[in-house]
């Protein structure tokens, strides 16, 4: 494979993690919940997914391929969903401030994940690294490994099923938001909870369910990172939360539109790995501080996008109107 194809391929895998995070957060934010705990939920999902797979591989006498896939999926989703549920309980039931709660969830998620990781590593014999190799093998099974399809295969067929599932998920969310009653109600809750309430929609339920499922989707992103990107490896030093912040930025960049999140996530990852592959592809040697500059690019692009949209002031290109605001019915 040429360097460019490697660059492309790693951007796709890395971008998928961001995409899951962004899709989960888009779903959450569409209900008016500004959950800044994405890094925490991604971390929780990553840890839970890995721990589930690792424990199953370690304890089961003989592993079942179906369970090897199902367990990390459920654990990853469940880990993130628990984070989302905690967040929505705090903000919807207890009416806590959304920003503060979200940030707290970020630290809590990373903390729990790292702490739990120590026990898993201890199980693996106090190494700084543990692997769920069988699971990783199944998740990374791809067409390209079995069929000779040239550069096309390297670029588009060399990924495990979760990569394609992310795109399908984005399309599903797009359809749900745009063409279903649930989507209409959800958007109404995020735009104007008082209107939704007067129309007989259960605002709190929509907010809680959206936050929880959104958290679960974020968790899947973390699971994909550990099982697929890290090839099933868990180490004491993880950098999953950085992807969580990229996911938050991507929600804004994609303008709360799931379809934009697809290409946006790949672009973000492409820019993120710029420093690594650019010199080998072009032969231009970058100065040592280059990584710090280029890894900033996704955020810079996001800020530019915000500025542009604010200049154009088109109503459709704005965040949900009630984003970040708690809803109290009694207020009049």
């Amino acid at each position: 494979m040429t360097s460019f194809v490697t660059w492309f391929a790693s951007a796709i895998v890395y971008g998928t993690v961001i995409m899951y995070g962004a899709l989960g957060e888009t779903l959450t934010q569409k209900s008016g919940q500004l959950n800044l705990g994405v890094p925490g939920m991604v971390f929780l999902g990553g840890f839970a997914g890995f721990a589930g797979a690792f424990m199953y591989e370690k304890t089961a006498a003989s592993t079942n391929e179906f369970l090897l896939v199902l367990i990390p999926l459920l654990c990853g989703f469940g880990g993130g969903a628990l984070g989302g549920l905690l967040y929505s309980f705090m903000t919807v039931v207890l009416k806590a401030n959304q920003n503060v709660t979200g940030l707290a969830l970020t630290f809590l998620g990373v903390g729990i994940g790292s702490f739990g990781g120590i026990y898993v590593l201890a199980d693996a014999g106090f190494q700084s690294f543990a692997t769920a190799s069988e699971t990783a093998k199944l998740f990374n099974w791809n067409i390209n490994a079995n069929v000779e399809a040239g550069v096309f295969g390297d670029m588009f067929l060399s990924y495990g099923f979760m990569i394609y599932a992310a795109i399908v998920l984005a399309v599903i969310l797009f359809v749900v938001f745009k063409y279903t009653r649930v989507g209409l109600n959800l958007r109404a809750v995020g735009e104007s909870p008082a209107t939704a309430d007067a129309a007989g929609i259960n605002v709190n339920r929509y907010k809680m369910v959206a936050s929880t499922i959104g958290g679960g989707i974020c968790g899947l992103g973390g699971m994909v990172y550990v099982i697929m990107y890290s090839r099933g490896g868990w180490s004491t030093v993880n950098n999953i939360e950085a992807l969580g912040w990229l996911a938050v930025a991507l929600v804004i960049f994609s303008n709360w539109k799931p379809l934009n999140a697809i290409w946006g996530s790949y672009l973000f990852a492409f820019l993120f790995w710029f420093y690594n592959y650019f010199p080998t592809v072009t032969g231009i040697v970058l100065p040592t501080y280059a990584p710090y500059l280029t890894q900033m690019l996704p955020y810079v692009v996001t800020i530019v996008i915000i500025v542009l949209f604010n200049f154009r002031k088109k109503k459709e290109n704005q965040p949900p109107a009630a984003l970040g605001l708690s809803y109290f019915r009694e207020e009049r």
Binding site: R181, L184, N185, R187, A188, S192, A194, T195, A199, E316
Partner: peptide
């Protein structure tokens, strides 16, 4: 009680159940 970014028809059917 109307959602600004919705169309008239979307606002009308808002909250109806299956």
């Amino acid at each position: 009680k109307l959602v600004d970014v919705f169309t008239a028809v979307e606002n009308t059917v808002l909250g109806l159940t299956r």
